[in-house]
Design a binder for these strands. Structure first.
Lengths: 333, 333
DNA sequence: TTGTACGCGTTATCAT
DNA sequence: ATGATAACGCGTACAA
């Protein structure tokens, strides 16, 4: 590897002081136009790029942020990560990607490592730590966007960004009811999930509004993937053969449920309607295409990163943003 | 944000010099056991973590690496990224994730930004730049793993990691032939893709080995996603109604092709056999499940990162690794 | 318009 | 066994 040129190198080549070059690099005033052009020439010629490490040491701005996700392989987070990276690119920021794999210890280590890297900000998805620990960790970073997690007491350097799960689930139930469906089941996600909790409330609200009885036999929990949805739907249809609608925690569960229905000879959507959540790419790949609560995940990632950038720059931001999911009616309900 | 403690802070608290603390932090000899314990106590008490930025400035090791992918949303690269991150975590390294979105300009900017961040190494997937430009860029980094790209002249600080596309495609064709299929088509990916080129060769070799004629009417190119596969398969079946097997560039194309067959009333696998490439999660979600050339993508990511780590540490590595894809026979062929 | 001195937090080197 | 000092590459504050 060729040694990278430093400010001093190109200052020497130009026969000027180090500061003059620095001014040119940072577009600051106080350099004659000819000198500026000459230096600019040398800069490109010698392939100089400022060393962000050294720059960060003195400015305590590293132009890099951390992104913590449970699993970047999950399409949900993959889309968000993509949005974050795109927006970071707009601002010439770099993104450290870290997976927690749902492991609280690894989550803590991820935070440590990002802190050691002196990131300017942090986008933290689905934080699993306790409320106290959350407070401690948030205090360590200059700016944080919390995705999929709420905050009891607002903090000036923290923004929360949540999907309006409650409303989404309620809309789905109302849609089912409008189709004349009566026995509406809910295949929920992990019980530790905040979203799962909020969606269950929305599901209940939807039923109540329609004067339909709540019946815990219609509710089930499962791992948020296709296998989970498949097994849970199988069990559900066994204990409640009269189910005519299934609201799923997410699209993966919905697809699993759809396949379970088909395996049992139930037609979707004729016999059983199915609605998913998130609208991942799979939703339109699968046949019949999934009716689902669409959330623009890449856009959420972008919003998160832009807000983070604003906070870093000292621009005031809303303390919390709530994203409205929108029902995309396709073929499954 | 609370000010992070520095070496000086805890040195002052311990009433010793800064260097003594540094020695303790770095597990170096030359500190009495009592002092070491006392300092260690203060370190945890005050929550000290070394500032990697400052450390990197003097050691010129940042313990961070760059990962360049076309699109982290693509399950193929998502899996690889996950493997890279997992292995990086094992070594306490951090990963900068950058998307190129197949844009050569953005790819160059990605390289610049990673270079400015002074990464210890780089994992570069599907490099699109010219051979000369490739050489220039490789020279800028201490260590590089090139995924999905070959190198004419080996470099001591660069390792290439490729899937044996040729062999995979040939195995697939042989499998088709073994099933008595005669009109075997190939829906290839983008013409600029190196993999696409190698797979085409393998496809040809497979046909030739089976004494089947090459027929360019059986070959098509398409964008490497489901829509691309769908459209291309539709066109293919229109111009060649007698096709009884389709080898697809990847699983997404295969799924698209499968749906096109179904839309045209062709049964898969009875009328038409389909084989994909990569074995992404979708392959087992879709029905019928996809027969495909399995590649352990997460494992590839891990191998890449571990090799990179070895190179950074000065351990010698193979100049090139070739991964054998394995045919996973499921329901589509 | 241009340059000098200093400090960011850490490690390496050389003293003590 | 411990400490003082110089460097790493850069920006800020001040001087010329």
């Amino acid at each position: 590897m060729k040694n990278r040129p430093t400010l001093a190198d190109i200052a020497e080549a130009a026969g000027v002081s180090l500061m003059t070059v620095s001014r040119v690099i940072n577009n600051k005033a106080g350099v004659s136009e000819d000198l500026r052009q000459e230096i600019l020439g040398l800069v490109t010629e010698m392939g100089y790029h400022p060393n962000q490490i050294a720059r960060g040491l003195v400015t305590s701005q590293t132009t890099s942020v951390g992104l913590i996700v449970p699993d970047n392989t999950n399409p949900f987070f993959a889309q968000i990560a993509r949005g974050v990276e795109d927006a970071a690119y707009e601002h010439a920021y770099s993104v450290f990607l870290v997976n927690t794999v749902e492991d609280p210890i690894r989550e803590l280590e991820a935070l440590d490592s990002l802190w050691q890297k002196d990131v300017d900000g942090l986008i933290w998805c689905s934080a699993r730590v306790s409320a106290e620990e959350l407070g401690v960790q948030l205090r360590r970073f200059p700016a944080v966007v919390l995705l999929n997690r709420e905050l009891e007491v607002p903090l000036s350097h923290v923004m929360t960004l949540n999907v309006h799960d409650y409303r989404g689930a309620r809309v789905a139930v109302t849609h089912f009811v409008g189709q004349g469906r009566q026995r509406i089941a809910f295949l929920n996600g992990p019980s530790h999930s905040l979203s799962a909790h909020r969606r269950l409330q929305g599901y209940h609200a939807g039923l109540t509004t329609a004067n339909l009885p709540l019946d815990s036999i219609l509710e089930g929990c499962c791992p948020p993937d296709t296998e989970g949805g498949y097994e849970a739907a199988l069990a559900l249809l066994k204990r409640c053969p009269d189910v005519d609608a299934i609201l799923a925690f997410n699209d993966l569960v919905a697809v699993g449920a759809m396949q379970a229905c088909q395996a049992l000879g139930r037609n979707v959507p004729k016999d059983i309607g199915i609605i998913g959540f998130d609208d991942i790419p799979l939703a339109t790949i699968i046949k019949p295409q999934l009716t689902t609560l669409h959330v623009n995940l890449m856009h959420i990632g972008k919003i998160a990163m832009r807000a983070l950038f604003d906070m870093v720059e000292g621009v005031t931001c809303p303390a919390a943003i709530l994203i409205e999911p929108e029902l995309f009616v396709r073929d499954s309900a």
